[in-house]
């Protein structure tokens, strides 16, 4: 299949990419741009490991065609660090054991990051509803909820989330 030229805006930078028209956004990010944070797992568009944000809205990059995402802002896990250091949420996930094997973590980060942008102080129910988009087979989710709450507290107090 002959390649086509597309323009994608990923993490604030424009990229001109030659790819086949049937390329999934996930494969384009991983293979053409070397952004391997977004993961392929279930292969039937259910697990959320490939979650990225399109114009700030979390979506599954394994169910999007790369060519369809032209003209939109794409944010991946590589784009959430703040000024070169980990975001409060990333630090809290590490401190509280919100990430174990880590394979699902980038997807969770993109989902939770969008939740906190829209709802800076979510209820337990809202956190639970947001986490229901992604599958984790290690943590049992409890540590993630603790990490998210710690990150919110840290943001409110303007400091890094530390385990008490």
């Amino acid at each position: 299949m002959s390649k086509i030229l597309i323009m994608l805006n990923v993490n604030g930078r424009s990229h001109e990419i030659a790819c086949e028209p049937n390329t999934l956004l996930l494969d384009c990010l991983r293979q053409d741009l070397g952004l391997t944070g977004s993961k392929r797992a279930c292969d039937d568009s259910s697990c959320g490991a490939c979650t990225v944000q399109i114009d700030g809205v979390p979506m599954l990059s394994c169910a999007l065609l790369a060519v369809s995402c032209q003209g939109q802002r794409i944010t991946t896990i590589e784009g959430v660090a703040e000024h070169g250091s980990l975001s409060a949420l990333q630090k809290a996930y590490s401190d509280w054991g919100g990430s174990q094997c880590g394979y699902c973590t980038p997807g969770f980060m993109m989902t939770v990051n969008a939740l906190l942008s829209e709802t800076p102080d979510p209820t337990d129910e809202q956190i639970g509803a947001a986490l229901s988009s992604n599958l984790c087979r290690c943590t049992g989710y409890v540590q993630m909820i603790q990490a998210i709450k710690a990150a919110i507290r840290a943001e409110q107090q303007g400091r890094a989330a530390k385990r008490a």
Partner: peptide
């Protein structure tokens, strides 16, 4: 329907 992220799409 499905999950919140899937409902975004």
């Amino acid at each position: 329907v499905a999950s919140p992220v899937i409902r975004n799409m």
